[in-house]
């Protein structure tokens, strides 16, 4: 009773998926990239160009160990390049996006936009 009903001119709801139904955009989501923290890492590094470990940890509010694990996953997938060095007598870890990482991030955002743009089953 409380649920809003669609107007009469709305197409009838499709109750089942047939073999020739178009795939849901969510099927294009990459599990490695779609994870919230990892997506945040990719977004920040893409915008920053090159970001330091501590900046990512602070921006994403992750512990060092947690961030390291996510970075390892992304590095193993060749989405990130990690460079270690020293500056001001402190060890620094700089993270940059690879070409594959840029493509993966763009694909992920495209899928998310496609999901939102997809007309829901009324």
């Amino acid at each position: 009773m409380g649920n809003p009903l669609p107007p009469n001119d709305v197409p009838a709801r499709q109750h089942f998926v047939t073999a020739d139904s178009p795939a849901h955009p969510a099927s294009g989501l990459d599990d490695i990239v779609h994870q919230k923290a990892r997506l945040g890492i990719l977004v920040i590094v893409h915008e920053a160009g090159r970001a330091e470990f501590s900046y990512l940890a602070q921006a994403l509010q992750l512990t060092n160990g947690n961030l390291s694990r996510h970075l390892r996953v992304l590095e193993d997938a060749n989405l990130l390049a990690i460079e270690k060095g020293y500056a001001d007598r402190r060890p620094r870890t700089w993270i940059a996006l690879t070409t594959k990482g840029k493509r993966a991030l763009k694909a992920e955002l495209d899928v998310l936009r496609a999901i939102i743009a997809r007309m829901p089953l009324a």
Binding site: P4, P6, P7, V10, H24, A26, K36, L39, G40, V43, I44, E47, A48, G49, A51, Y55, A59, L60, L109, L112, R113, I115, I116, R118, M119, P120, L121, A122
Partner: peptide, 30 residues
């Protein structure tokens, strides 16, 4: 009549909103 998004759409919208916030912060710091 589409003001009530599906769970997929709500989740995607939330993710894109958080992405937008991160972009804003990184851009401001840079």
């Amino acid at each position: 009549y589409l003001l009530h998004p599906s769970p997929w759409q709500a989740a995607a919208q939330e993710t894109l909103d958080s992405v937008s916030r991160l972009v804003t912060r990184s851009r401001r710091d840079r």
